[in-house]
């Protein structure tokens, strides 16, 4: 049976040192809702487990100059209970809160969801649409990485050996902005997205002046769909523009047929969710 060393450092430097010294056998434990399940299934056999939940920077939510910095190990439940963050980024919060179940929310983190690198991760399309930036620290210091560049493929990240995601920063956005995340699952909960769609947009009057659109579960990694954003920007979110954005989403899809959905269905649903998510984001933008 597996036997792994367990360490719970209190600083990022220490955690990075442990990871860098593990010879590639180290795994970061935040909530453990992916790692422990994968270990039980024999899919992961780590030699070292680095529990990051005792590191203040990784377990806190901080607002600074309009930016929100979410520690990579903050649980979904804590994010849910943070009224300020919820009001500022409702789409991101609802996406993070869709991970797993009520029980899983008590442990699961956005950082873990990102680093697990599932194309169907619920929080990632919302973070990508939000323009979130990951703070990554490794043996060579810190760097800022757009969230969409972290996943490299199913179960793979672009992180270098020894690097860990410390926090996720949601950049300040102008008044009149709103975001939303929708996913399609065959059930009402306890399921994995067949398609996920995150939308973040800014309105000036009736005009959409900025937009970012991201899709999950339709390609090996979460997609930033710039063509869809382009179709929205400069429009009044009129039916023709929405259809153009939906078409751009469908065109961006490179899904697979699997037990969770077909290519045809996923492609169609990407367009459906885009329209619905835009409607919610626009409604929220109107309130800000």
């Amino acid at each position: 049976m597996m036997q792994a060393e367990y360490r719970a450092p209190t600083s990022v430097d220490e955690a990075v040192g442990l990871m860098a010294g593990s010879g590639g056998k180290g795994r970061v434990l935040a909530g453990g809702t992916d790692l422990l399940v994968q270990m039980r299934a024999g899919m992961q056999v780590p030699g070292l487990i680095v529990d990051v939940k005792r590191i203040a920077e990784m377990t806190s939510i901080v607002q600074q100059d309009g930016d929100w910095r979410i520690g990579a190990a903050v649980s979904g439940a804590e994010i849910h209970d943070h009224a300020g963050l919820r009001a500022a980024w409702p789409g991101v919060v609802e996406a993070i809160n869709l991970i797993g179940s009520k029980q899983v929310q008590g442990r699961a983190s956005a950082g873990g969801n990102l680093c697990n690198a599932s194309p169907a991760a619920d929080s990632v399309p919302a973070l990508v649409a939000a323009g979130a930036v990951a703070t990554v620290q490794g043996p060579n210091g810190r760097r800022a990485v757009p969230v969409e560049q972290i996943p490299a493929g199913p179960g793979r990240t672009s992180l270098a050996p020894g690097e860990i995601v410390v926090s996720l920063t949601l950049p300040a956005r102008p008044k009149g902005s709103g975001d939303a995340y929708l996913r399609l699952i065959p059930r009402t909960e306890m399921d994995i997205a067949v398609v996920g769609c995150g939308v973040n947009l800014t309105l000036s009057g009736h005009n959409c002046v900025a937009a970012r659109v991201a899709l999950g579960a339709v390609a090996p990694t979460v997609l930033l769909v710039e063509a869809a954003a382009k179709a929205l920007i400069g429009s009044t979110l009129d039916p023709a523009s929405l259809e153009a954005a939906a078409a751009a989403c469908r065109a961006a899809c490179k899904p697979i047929d699997d037990k969770r959905g077909t290519i045809v269905y996923r492609t169609k649903i990407a367009g459906v969710l885009l329209k619905r998510a835009v409607a919610i984001a626009a409604q929220r933008a109107g309130k800000h």
Partner: peptide
């Protein structure tokens, strides 16, 4: 929702409650 999904080799693709979708309470 419930069904057995096989691949071309005749191997079951959804041998668990995540992808063998029984209804949940909600």
């Amino acid at each position: 929702n419930e069904e057995y999904i096989y691949d071309k080799q005749g191997r079951l693709q959804n041998p668990g409650f995540l992808d063998y979708r029984m209804p949940v309470a909600s």
